[in-house]
Write a protein that binds this DNA or RNA. Structure first.
Lengths: 101, 101
DNA sequence: CAAGGTGTTCGTAGTTTTACGATTACCGAA
DNA sequence: TTCGGTAATCGTAAAACTACGAACACCTTG
């Protein structure tokens, strides 16, 4: 997507909120996010058993949520555990709220 | 997108948050949303003069923001005025916050 | 009624995203 | 060292999204 605004508005903050929102705009991603509300950690296999999507697709979603700073990964062979990442959540929240005044 | 969850999770509330988030995840839509923060109303032509996108594209974005309940339209010939729609904003906020615990 | 100004609708390319299965990588146990 | 279980990566097909211009609709004015 190539967009040029007449005045440059795409600040770092703006980009961050967009990145978070993109994840929030995907039904499966939001479903996964909700899973982490309690308990705050899930194994890949746990999530996989709840969803009908392929494991590879799930990995992709988890990767993106991690990239957005919303969850973190903890490899504990043979399984992989994902947990809430609190660090970036408050900024995300405030950005979204700002968007809605 | 055809997705079937093993347990049906796509509640009305969930769908609403996703719909809002989809809009929030589009850079131009968020840019437009911010324009309504002050003043709370803009004419189509005002927005058009700030963005480099085609007018038809702008109409589309405004249509979708309206469909998400975030803005409202007021036709005042010869111009069209869009204003903040407060009604659905608080629900949207709380849904997004809930998503982030 | 014609002309002009303002937006919307429509049809269509081009791009991006999504999901999948096959393959690969990694570790621990036999 | 081979096998079995778990998850990630890769390549690809399908679907969804974005943006555009042309055409259309609707007022208001001359």
């Amino acid at each position: 997507m190539i967009i040029t605004l007449k005045s440059d508005y795409f600040t770092k903050e703006h980009k961050q909120s967009v990145r978070f929102a993109i994840d929030s705009g995907h039904p499966v991603k939001t479903y996964i996010l909700q899973l982490f509300n309690s308990p705050s950690c899930c194994f890949h296999s746990n999530i996989s058993s709840v969803l009908t999507i392929a494991k590879s697709t799930l990995s992709q979603h988890l990767f993106e949520l991690k990239a957005a700073g919303l969850i973190q990964r903890d490899i504990t062979p043979p399984a992989v555990k994902y947990c809430i990442e609190h660090k970036d959540r408050d900024p995300a929240k405030s950005l979204m709220n700002k968007l809605l005044i």
